[in-house]
Design a protein around this nucleic acid. Structure first.
Length: 471
RNA sequence: GGCCCGUUCGUCUAGCUGGCCCAGGACACCAGGUUUUCAUCCUGUAAAUCAGGGGUUCGAAUCCCCUACGGGCUACCA
């Protein structure tokens, strides 16, 4: 009787996947894997005007980088294929027709200009136009027109949309795993377009139909969908699917590190931290947005940080592997309020993972950076350098700034320091100490310290005078 | 404007079935120690009258109401 848990991540290919989207995908993944269910990647590309080439590949690569794996989807297929809504176009129409037949939807012939005019008219009176039970009888639709007129309009190839006929003054209940019961009066909803005049369904119809057809049991998505959840509930009941209706979980949003509002691409540029998992170049403007991967973050750190933004284990444990997250995750530990994004904490997480990595792993990554800089160095040497400086940095990309002097002579000196530390007799000290080091019977820290200390004693100098110069 | 959701240290949060909370942890901050520098690391300090106001109760961060503030939605976008 228990249905197999199935969830889906359903982004629109309208640009690079935002870090908030990654978190939504992650929560879906953690939840479904905890119960051994299936994870579906579905692409919601019903708005051809907003389609951005490359976005789909970007989404797949990003999630892949994060270690979020799918069981079905556009890139791997599956028994409910196709998983791209533009390829399922024919499927939706029959459900829109079904709704018209059972009287819960109708044809609307109003043009964009007419609707626009209506909105302006209402606005001038400080009101908001809402296509609903309050005024649908005065609009141009199949509820107001004569049958013959309707048939004529349709057969003439005129443009029309299909709208859902929202009932008046009914209480609709949405059960949310995070927020509990949410009640909305249907009179607050407008007669949403389900099927557009371009032959594509809108999000609302396509989403509900696909979730039903793909046997999705839990809809886990951002809070921005909460207001339309009652509409979706209505759709399930009108389509006769109330028994298969999935459970909902609306996730709180990610907010700007400072100021007001939700986290956006601009904040990354403004505050200097990545908002995207991978670097993205806008195909139209060539504008580049930095990504976590290219900035030197480890996917494990990004995943760990994202998981703890809005969810917590209820213990003081902060470092979690993906496996541990899957074990620990549950919706009743997901917060209800939006979380401010903290780039500093992201760095801290990365630092923790950096310290856990072997020198080999770090060296492999660093070797690539060195190569790009045209520096060819011995692998064992790179290994030593990594061991030396790894705890000084948060990101692999910061390694160079901390260790460049191991690979090339410094180009500039800090004037002030030189002035402070470099005295007339400094050169002599350095030369003498160099002698000592060269003549030493070995090259170990303890041995050298002993020899140099001896030198300092003999010359009756201060340790600082000699060592500062040497540095 | 309307509707929906939310509100504990600067930030992420613990606290959810009321007393163990004059509120705990982490990041950041500050101070001390280690490192003859810096960073790391260790220790510690400071930091929320639990948005405000009313209730309910012997007792409320925890339950109820109001207000304020924040967020989201309000397209033939998703």
């Amino acid at each position: 009787m228990e249905r197999k848990i199935r969830v889906r991540f359903a982004p629109s290919p309208t640009g690079p996947l935002h870090i908030g989207g990654v978190r939504t995908a992650l929560y879906n993944y953690l939840f479904v894997k905890k119960f051994g269910g299936d994870f579906i990647l579905r692409i919601e590309d019903t708005d051809q005007a907003r389609f951005v080439p490359g976005a789909e590949e970007y989404i797949i690569e990003s999630l892949n980088w994060c270690g979020i794996k799918f069981d079905e989807g556009i890139h791997i297929g599956g028994q409910y294929a196709p998983y791209r809504q533009s390829e399922r176009k024919e499927i939706y129409r029959q459900y829109a027709d079904q709704l018209i037949e059972n009287g819960s939807a109708y044809y609307a012939f109003d043009s964009a200009e007419e609707l626009d005019a209506k909105r302006k008219e209402y606005e001038s009176q400080k009101q908001t136009f809402q296509y609903s039970s309050a005024n649908r009888s005065s609009m141009n639709n199949s509820l107001t027109l004569k049958d013959s007129e309707i048939k004529q309009k349709i057969s003439n190839g005129g443009l029309y949309a299909i709208r859902l006929k929202i009932p008046e003054n009914k209480t609709i209940e949405v059960n949310d795993l995070i927020r509990g019961k949410v009640m909305v009066n249907s009179s607050q909803l407008d007669d949403k377009v389900l099927f557009k005049s371009d032959g594509f369904p809108t999000y609302h119809l396509a989403n509900v139909v696909d979730d039903f057809l793909m046997k999705v049991t839990h809809v886990i998505r951002g809070e921005e969908w909460l207001p339309s959840a009652p509409l979706h509930v209505l759709l399930y009941t009108y389509l006769g699917w109330e028994n298969e209706m999935p459970q909902f979980a609306h996730l709180p949003l990610l907010l700007k590190p400072d100021g007001n509002g939700k986290l956006s691409k601009r904040d990354g540029d403004r505050l200097g931290f990545p908002v995207f998992p991978l670097t993205w170049t806008d195909p139209k403007t060539n504008e580049i947005s930095s990504g976590y991967r290219e900035s030197g973050y480890f996917p494990e750190a990004v995943v760990n940080m994202l998981a703890l933004l809005g969810w917590n284990p209820g213990t003081e444990k902060e470092l979690f592997s993906m496996e541990e997250l899957i074990q620990a995750f549950s919706f009743d530990r997901v917060g209800k309020s939006g979380s401010r994004f903290d780039p500093e904490k992201a760095k801290w997480f990365n630092h923790q993972y950096l310290l856990k990595k072997s020198n080999e792993e770090i060296a492999n990554l660093f070797a690539k950076i060195l190569e790009e800089k045209g520096i060819n160095s011995d692998y064992s040497y790179i290994l030593k350098v990594c061991n030396l400086v790894k705890e000084r940095v948060n990101l692999v990309s910061e390694l160079w700034a901390q260790s460049s002097f191991f690979f090339e002579a410094p180009k500039i000196f800090d004037e002030k320091t030189v002035k402070d530390k470099w005295k007339e007799n400094s050169a002599q000290f350095v030369a003498e100490v160099k002698e000592i080091i060269n003549n030493a019977s070995g090259f170990s820290a303890a041995l050298l310290k002993e020899s140099v200390s001896e030198y300092v004693r003999q010359k009756q100098l201060g340790m600082g005078q000699v060592m500062n110069a040497l540095r």
